[in-house]
C-alpha cells in the first residue's frame, strides 16, 4: 500500500528539482540547441534551394547553348550550301566563257583560213593568167614569126568575122 501513496517529501522535492531543471535547461540548453538546429536547418534549406536554382539556371544555360549550337550548325550548312552553289556557278560560267572563246577562235580561224584560201586562189588565178599571157605571148611570138602563118591567122580571123 505504501507504494501507491505518494510521500509529501518526494512530491515537494520533485517539484522543486523539476522546476529548477526546467528553468536551467530551458535557458542554457534548449534555447541555444533548438535555435542552432533551426538556423542550420534554415541554412540547409537555403543551400538546397540555391542548388536547385543553380541547377535550373544550368539547365537553361545548357538549353541556350544547344540552341546556339544548333543555330550555328544551320548557319554553317547554309554557308556551305551557298559556297557550293557559288563554286558550281563559277565553274559553269568559266566553262561557258571558255566554250565561247573556243567557238570565237574557231570561227575566226575558219574565216582566216577561208580568206587565206581566197587570197591563194586569187594569187593562183593571177599567176595562171600571167603565165597564160606569157605562154600566149610566147606562142604568138613563135607563131607570128613566120609570115605565112600570120597571114593564115589573119585570114582565119577574117573568115570568122561574119559581116552580116
Amino acid at each position: 500500500m505504501d507504494l501507491i501513496i505518494p510521500s509529501e517529501g518526494l512530491l515537494f522535492w520533485t517539484t522543486i528539482v523539476f522546476v529548477i531543471l526546467l528553468v536551467l535547461l530551458r535557458k542554457f540548453a534548449w534555447k541555444p540547441i533548438l535555435g542552432a538546429v533551426q538556423t542550420r536547418e534554415g541554412n540547409i534549406q537555403k543551400a538546397l534551394d540555391s542548388a536547385k536554382d543553380a541547377e535550373e539556371r544550368m539547365n537553361a544555360l545548357t538549353a541556350q547553348n544547344e540552341d546556339l549550337l544548333k543555330q550555328a550548325r544551320e548557319e554553317r550548312n547554309v554557308i556551305l550550301r551557298e559556297a557550293k552553289a557559288a563554286g558550281e556557278s563559277m565553274v559553269a560560267e568559266a566553262k561557258e566563257s571558255a566554250q565561247k572563246d573556243a567557238d570565237r577562235i574557231l570561227v575566226s580561224a575558219n574565216e582566216q583560213i577561208a580568206n587565206e584560201r581566197m587570197k591563194a586562189v586569187v594569187e593562183l588565178k593571177n599567176q595562171v593568167g600571167k603565165l597564160s599571157l606569157e605562154i600566149a605571148e610566147k606562142i604568138l611570138k613563135s607563131e607570128l614569126d613566120d609570115k605565112a602563118k600570120q597571114e593564115s591567122l589573119v585570114n582565119h580571123l577574117v573568115e570568122d568575122v561574119n559581116l552580116n
Binding site: E8, W13, L24, L25
Partner: peptide, 22 residues
C-alpha cells in the same frame, strides 16, 4: 517529512548528469 531521501539524491544526480550532458 521533507527529507532528502535516496530518491531525491538520485534525482539530483540525474540533474547533474543532464547539466553535464547538455
Amino acid at each position: 517529512d521533507f527529507s532528502l531521501t535516496q530518491n531525491v539524491m538520485s534525482m539530483l544526480l540525474s540533474v547533474v548528469i543532464l547539466m553535464l550532458l547538455f
